[in-house]
Design a protein around this nucleic acid. Structure first.
Lengths: 234, 234
DNA sequence: CACCAGATTAAACACTCGTTCAACCGGCCG
DNA sequence: CGGCCGGTTGAACGAGTGTTTAATCTGGTG
């Protein structure tokens, strides 16, 4: 309510119908996945299926609207808590707020299904991690890496992917009520091993790393984000 | 072919029809996901949709048969290369073999969708990691952990989840031809940061870990797999 | 050969899906 | 008042889905 950054919609006394449909779609998609039918969403919003396509053109148009909404929400919320921690913690925080939980669920479904939103999401996660790690490096609490970009991507993928997998397995039902508790359980299980690994590592000696470093010439120059599709090797 | 452990099927000169259907289903499910239609699978196997349900009872029965097949395959293959490395590397190896690639793809789809096979799979991954880490610990190359089970689960979820996410985003098309190359690219991007993190850690000092250890009493006894739903703290 | 059991097929059934269409209703403007 | 126009509805359509059913083909056995 009282959307602070609301640009050009839902200014009326009650929610505009289109926004209501879109929010219902986010909640329903988050709950049931994207195979949820238009009629179900319509019933949730108190309208008819035909009206949805009248407003959004098609089911895909509705999904794009949902994506846009969630993405804008993410951008807005990120600014408020940038210094706080990794993207996973940000998501965990947001999931605690009852109003935001459907968005987080929708995000998880998006990453489960792949697609544009998911790609953009992981890019956000990476840039978050980049900022976080850079700040830590500058402050002297994070070790420098031989390939900063690669490490950033690695950490973001690990954190996001394991969270996604955890919820796919343990939260398949995806009831929005149990959702915050699930998130807390995940963080509880996670925190100690993560901190342990981050401070002490896993291996006692450097032989594996040194071996690898001897094997490959120098990592940081090659293997960036530009378009190299296939490796040279067969 | 020449299934060494084949118990009671496909002993004839050519593939039995049921097996052919099942293999086609594995390939098609891996390629298109589980929303692939029975008629498509039937066409792949050169039969009719009705025959599939005649042999497997229902689409769900077919999926169960596929799950069983893939799981048995995993068990068999795991024995052959247990000492080699983590479950991720095992999957990467198998994906290189053209004949096994469809199974790996099917596995990825399963974890994407959740369900029983996925749960059993991650349990395999965890037990693999357990064996691998225990051996490393005994050999003196892996540091001991304050909570071994939690660390094992953590590492297994991270490795598996990040791989799943990576393929969801970069391999959505899922053509079995480009699949081994994708896997190689994933490993290439991954290896350096992983080794770095495993040998050197991420943080320079122990303050975060010590703070956390001071905050929670003792991790290894509590917080197991039994049913504790909500924490005592508000 | 007769007969039966299983494999296999083509068609039909019941259902859901996204989308389309014609109609209706309520304001707003001329 | 008349007319238009966007919001909204309910019914219909066509293309899918999984499943069922009756019929056909095939091979082995008494």
């Amino acid at each position: 309510m009282t959307s602070l950054g609301g640009a050009s919609e839902e200014r009326g006394g009650e929610l505009a119908t289109a926004s209501r449909i879109r929010d219902a779609a986010i909640a329903r998609f988050g709950r049931d996945g994207f195979r949820a039918g238009l009629r179900t969403i319509a019933a949730d919003a108190g309208v008819t299926a035909g009206l949805i396509v009248h407003h959004f053109g098609s089911k895909d148009g509705l999904r794009r609207a949902c994506d846009e909404r969630v993405l804008e929400f993410m951008r807005r919320e990120k600014k408020k808590a940038l210094t706080d921690g990794t993207g996973t913690m940000l998501l965990a925080q947001m999931a605690q707020v009852e109003q935001f939980a459907p968005m987080v669920l929708y995000l998880l479904r998006s990453m489960q299904a792949g697609g544009e939103l998911a790609a953009e999401l992981i890019e956000h996660m990476i840039s978050d991690a980049e900022a976080y790690l850079s700040a830590g490096e500058a402050a002297g609490v994070v070790r420098p890496s031989r390939d900063r970009a690669a490490r950033t991507r690695y950490l973001a993928y690990q954190a996001t992917g394991s969270m996604l997998l955890w919820f796919t397995l343990h939260g398949g039902d995806a009831e929005p009520e149990k959702f915050p508790a699930l998130f807390r359980r995940y963080m509880d299980e996670l925190t100690l091993p993560a901190l342990e690994l981050f401070t002490e590592g896993l291996l006692v000696d450097r032989s594996m790393l040194d071996e690898y470093l001897m094997y490959v010439p120098d990592p940081p120059s090659a293997a960036s984000n530009a378009a190299d599709q296939d490796g040279t090797a067969s």
